[in-house]
Design a protein around this nucleic acid. Structure first.
Lengths: 247, 247
DNA sequence: TGTACATCAGTGAACGCGCGTTCACTGATGTAC
DNA sequence: TGTACATCAGTGAACGCGCGTTCACTGATGTAC
């Protein structure tokens, strides 16, 4: 109960703080280079150079180039996941379409703002690199945001469950998925959500990777339209006075 | 009108044939390496080595590494485009859902069979590489197959055009697109097709790039379900006895 | 048909570059008594 | 509080590697007369 924390603790955290800060700076610089060179071009030596260090010094912070890549991947998943969560949570709890659309828009905005980090996690896999287990959790944050909206909406009776029945195989897969992530949710609803989920990322990837090739660009209007239509496809009903429809 | 072609011509084609054959072999070997190293790892030296040539010899065939990449990209677009066209054309002309679904399945099958070529054209862009104009035509073959099905279906009255109106911006973009590729087709129909188009590639990319992470895998059942549902979303009506519904 | 010349494919050496990773080291920071 | 030791961050040199591209060259293939 001393007024000042024990000096032992303080000094330890001094070194640890320096370490944490440099770790952050290394990742920041690496992200900056990602934007220029892509994941394959990311070079420990170039990062060190930019930071005014010798390249071998980085090995105090990351045991190898792949570990640095893994850290960047996890950070990127966490960043887009956090953005989706925050945006979705900012909408009124009972405006399920609003919460869903907000999450989609947040992912879209994050992708446009961080195209190379987006490519890192949703683009072609880096050859020779195997994503470790530690990326699975962060990677599931975005889909979990969407599923949470559906759970709440379903509980509130604001989600329709119509449409054709699933085949046996798909029904089994979806029920297993529901048991893990959303007990009580109809399997077909989860499958429709997966359709919307893949459409969302397909659309963003096409926009970022240049597949629209001037046809529907700028793609903002198409994005809004598709998001609206897929919410209806999934079964999210609008609420009076709470529509999220835009321009 | 001599019985044998003039020797001048024959000998010229002899050299030209050798050239064409080696060009083909170079691309084949490069494709093989793509599967191991990815686009960024593609190395002229490694290709030459495998072919038993000296690396500088490749410069007789491709003026630079980027030109070889461009050739591979164009070939890949042409391959997937041809696969989609052939599959779609193999279905009865009046079975519009069948033709659409066949095209989607062909793209899917091609992607699974050539994951690295798929990644080359639909994955993250290769940093520092700008796709030249020559790729635009081949890249549009797949969407044009889908549009052709819609044009024929629309002309036959087998495509519904319902759903909410488009916003002004989107309507303008879609009408310009329709004028270029499908005169007479409602703009909203083209936009719905674009939704299905992005969903198709989003779904395939997620499957290939590992985003499903065991949840809906193997993804064949989901693929079939999504394809069916999106045909209905687009407005393609089934024909009696011509349904393409599977498993 | 035969000869003289032009075109082209492929060679081998070289240039200049950057990379990831290891290792023995110096000197600063933190710890135990 | 002061000293002796342990831990850790960062250095600088080195290893071994592969890359794209250029260039002067040899020898084969194609062309014109």
């Amino acid at each position: 109960m001393s007024e000042t924390p024990p000096p032992v603790k303080a000094s330890r955290t001094a070194r640890e703080r320096a370490r944490a800060e440099l770790t952050r700076e290394i990742k920041e610089e690496a992200r900056r280079q990602l934007a220029v060179t892509g994941a394959d071009g990311l070079s420990l030596r170039a990062v060190a150079r930019q930071l005014g260090m010798v390249s071998s010094a980085l090995y105090r912070y990351f045991p190898s180039r792949d570990d640095l890549l893994t850290a960047l991947i996890i950070d990127a998943y966490d960043a887009v996941g956090a953005a989706a969560e925050a945006a979705s949570d900012a909408a009124p709890g009972s405006d399920f379409r609003g919460r869903w659309a907000a999450a989609c828009r947040a992912v879209h905005a994050w992708a446009l703002a961080h195209p190379h980090e987006y490519a890192l996690i949703y683009g072609s896999p880096v050859p020779g690199y195997k994503a470790p287990e530690a990326t699975v959790g962060p990677a599931s944050r975005v889909p979990l945001v969407l599923i949470r909206v559906l759970r709440d909406g379903w509980a509130a009776g604001a989600v329709a469950d119509d449409g054709p029945a699933l085949g046996d195989v798909l029904a089994g897969q979806a029920e297993r998925l529901a048991a893990d992530t959303a007990p009580g949710l109809p399997a077909a609803l989860l499958v429709r959500a997966a359709v919307a989920w893949t459409q969302l990322f397909g659309m963003i990837s096409f926009e970022l990777f240049g597949q629209f090739a001037r046809t529907l660009e700028p793609a903002g209007a198409f994005f809004e339209y598709a998001t609206e239509r897929l919410m209806s496809f999934v079964g999210l009903r609008g609420v009076l006075g709470g529509s999220s429809l835009r321009g």
